[in-house]
């Protein structure tokens, strides 16, 4: 099934003085798609999200949102909602008052109370609806920001780091809301530094570096471009595992010292293609060494991110 595009950007360029924030960016987001924006700090993510919300206009290029060409600031069509740089709510008001005031501002007078109550319930804040925001944690504010965006029943939802500060329960709420909206046909564009969130939520990602797109496409394709990964191997006998790994053809042992000399760790780090890793497991079992864990040190998505943005995992750590 092909869906109509919610966002279609071509050759978008945006500068702030001498600083080029976006340099010929193309972006396609289909309705019903959760699209991740990822990139290092200063890559242009926030600028791009700002363009989608209408907070700024591109210096050149073409940006269509929900079928409308956006040519000036604050002129994005109805149906676009979201936030950048925090949810922007008022600490002197309660959660319910914040949403009610926003609903009234947007002209949603009829059924306002029900709409607000529903939005609060969706993000799991019903219990604290009448508490003032000044006592809210960062994660609660993030969820309320999402609730505020939901009031307009968006067709394009733009979120900047929506999982920032969320506890596992809050994260669950936010993920459920986002996937529910996407299932109902809403396009969601979200930026995040958390690769696990992007992997869990997004069907496609766009990777930005210094204002340019270095990758755009399905998450799986990005992961596949990550090349050989470092794997963490946890066993019942680290010293024997280290010896077996050294004897396994085609496998690089990244741990610099024998585990026998380092009783504080039972982890071995190795790198090699998947068949060689299979061979390692077989050899360990034959040597009566139990394999308790075999997992990438960083996720494939993160590895691809680091590789494509020219950052090393060591730097990132």
């Amino acid at each position: 099934m092909r869906r109509s595009p919610a966002v279609r950007g071509r050759g978008i360029r945006k500068s702030f003085g001498d600083v080029v924030a976006l340099d010929g960016v193309d972006l396609d987001v289909a309705s019903g798609q959760v699209h991740g924006l990822v990139g290092p700090n200063g890559a242009g993510k926030t600028t791009l999200l700002g363009l989608l919300l209408g907070l700024a206009v591109a210096d050149s290029g073409r940006l269509e949102i929900l079928g409308t060409t956006v040519g000036r600031t604050l002129a994005v069509p109805d149906g676009v909602s979201g936030f950048v740089d925090g949810p922007g709510l008022y600490p002197s008001l309660t959660a319910r008052q914040n949403l009610s005031a926003l609903a009234a501002l947007r002209g949603h007078e009829t059924g306002q109370a029900a709409r607000v109550g529903e939005a609060l319930e969706q993000v799991g804040l019903t219990d604290v609806a009448d508490d003032r925001l000044r006592g809210f944690s960062l994660g609660m504010r993030q969820r309320l920001g999402l609730a505020a965006a939901l009031l307009t029943e968006p067709r394009l939802l733009v979120l900047d780091e929506p999982a920032n500060g969320l506890d596992p329960a809050g994260k669950h709420h936010v993920h459920r809301v986002i996937t529910g909206l996407a299932a109902a046909g809403t396009a969601v564009v979200l930026s995040s530094h958390r690769m696990d969130d992007l992997a869990a939520l997004c069907s496609e990602v766009t990777l930005l570096a210094t204002g340019r797109v270095v990758f755009s496409g399905p998450v799986g394709k990005l992961a596949a471009e990550s090349g050989e990964l470092d794997y963490r191997v946890r066993t019942s006998d680290p010293a024997e595992a280290h010896r077996v790994a050294l004897e396994t053809p085609g496998l690089q042992v990244k741990s610099d010292r024998d585990p026998a000399e380092r009783p504080d760790t039972d982890v071995l780090v190795v790198r090699g293609p998947v068949p060689v890793l299979d061979d390692l497991v077989v050899r360990l079992v034959r040597a009566d060494v139990a394999v308790r864990e075999l997992a990438p040190v960083v996720s494939p998505l993160e590895a691809a991110f680091l590789a494509m943005t020219g950052q090393t995992d060591e730097e990132n750590k």
């Binding site: 869906r3 604050l74 069509p77 109805d78 149906g79 676009v80």
Partner: peptide
């Protein structure tokens, strides 16, 4: 392959001053 029809376009209007 099907195409989902785009919803009707609604031009954005600023919120009235009174609101």
């Amino acid at each position: 392959m099907t195409t989902v029809a785009a919803p009707p376009r609604v031009e954005a209007q600023p919120a009235p001053v009174l609101r």
